[in-house]
Design a protein around this nucleic acid. Sequence first.
DNA 1: CGGGGGTTTGACGAACGTCAATCGGGGTGG
DNA 2: CCACCCCGATTGACGTTCGTCAAACCCCCG
Lengths: 247, 247
Amino acid sequence: MTSRQRLQQADVGRLRDFGVRALSHGHALSEEEQQQLRVALSDLQTQPAGSELFTEGERLNRPCLLLEGWAARQRVLSDGRRQIFSFVLPGDGFGFSGRPAGMSPGNVVALTAVTVVPLPLLEEALYRDAADPIRQSVWEMLALRESLLANQVMRLGRQSAYERLVHLLLEFHERLAAVGLVQDGSFEMPFTQEVLSDALGLSTVHTNRTLQQLRREHLIETHGTAVRLLDLKLLAEIADYRRAPGL
Amino acid sequence: MTSRQRLQQADVGRLRDFGVRALSHGHALSEEEQQQLRVALSDLQTQPAGSELFTEGERLNRPCLLLEGWAARQRVLSDGRRQIFSFVLPGDGFGFSGRPAGMSPGNVVALTAVTVVPLPLLEEALYRDAADPIRQSVWEMLALRESLLANQVMRLGRQSAYERLVHLLLEFHERLAAVGLVQDGSFEMPFTQEVLSDALGLSTVHTNRTLQQLRREHLIETHGTAVRLLDLKLLAEIADYRRAPGL
DNA sequence: CGGGGGTTTGACGAACGTCAATCGGGGTGG
DNA sequence: CCACCCCGATTGACGTTCGTCAAACCCCCG
């Protein structure tokens, strides 16, 4: 909660609609339910890149929905080494755990400027009736979060730098496509190679060289921070990639 | 569900009591509640080492509580490389996710002979009143599970073999102590170094050499499969170990 | 006494990290 | 508009950690 910036009025509507879609997640909502959601999504906040959205050890009782930008869950060792556990993408929730006394196992940090909205609803919905569509969406968020962590463990534990990078790129592609952020097979990865390295458990130098190899082999293309995966099938084979359950 | 073996009648009572304690987790239960739990813990099943308690992709709608023995969540790459995500210890639940259509992101495999009990209660309790002690215990299980995964990512991504091993040993020590399985500062690790390696993302040879180094430095002692940590404070410093929130 | 699985050892190679220098592009003050 | 600057990307040389292969060893058990 360090600072907040202005949002263009036109964006507010678009972001709210995006939030409504993220929370219905394929399940049909009545007009009335949608309207209630839009109201709940009122307090949009924009925070600059680098701001800490959540602190390690903080009580997880301030549920938020990320509407725009990238964030990361991470932990920093006492000697400064950083590991990113997982990325928080538009449509993802964070800052809650259905446990009253739950504590965050790491920081949540904004990698770009982000727009978030506090949403106590996320936690409340967990206890609704099993048929409630919002409840289902929130559970899917939690299940996806765990599944992504499992992927991350698999990558870090048993895959080579090359495989790891491909696997993570495929994961980005799949998650971003699910929220409409892949255009023409290309998506934005709006952060430095150091961030990528801290997610992959590699040095920046090695990450750089691995990226170059993928470019040389015409498996990916990059333009600035935009990435295009050129052969999804082959890439998936290289990384032994499996679609995340719940995506 | 490949096979079941006999349990000594005397053990049944002990294991049920253990289950009741695990599910109350410090919260006080009335006599009546305890009795209900004991009834719910009726169908004890013993399975041999190596049996698959859950299959990757299987619907997570068969909650179980592990009462005795060790199990592991793992995934195997198509070329045979195995990565263990996390260990399931006595008192831990598995096989449920709160999401109706949740699927397991990996296998659950018995590392030793195990005693488990099917317990639909685990999933049902998630939706109880926030003050319900069983509900709190189950949420703590889920939170712990995620926290352990975060630890695992940290280890694999940013720690050396030496640090990783120490960190994992400390985690075992802490978790086992919480369920009364550390005696005299010593606990059992009833599996091969290959299992340990597949958890640490190392080769068995390197795991072996790292263990030897810790023994040479008088930081640990082993007798058969029993391990004793000789200087918890120093070990915690080496591995930058932090107590898991919720333990 | 003989197997067999697990542990230990040694020799060697590959993957990845570190250090340090250079490059390149976009922003900015003059 | 241009020179400058700064951060991030890239490159090269070299060191370390860890993996691989294969053999030896150990211990428990039949």
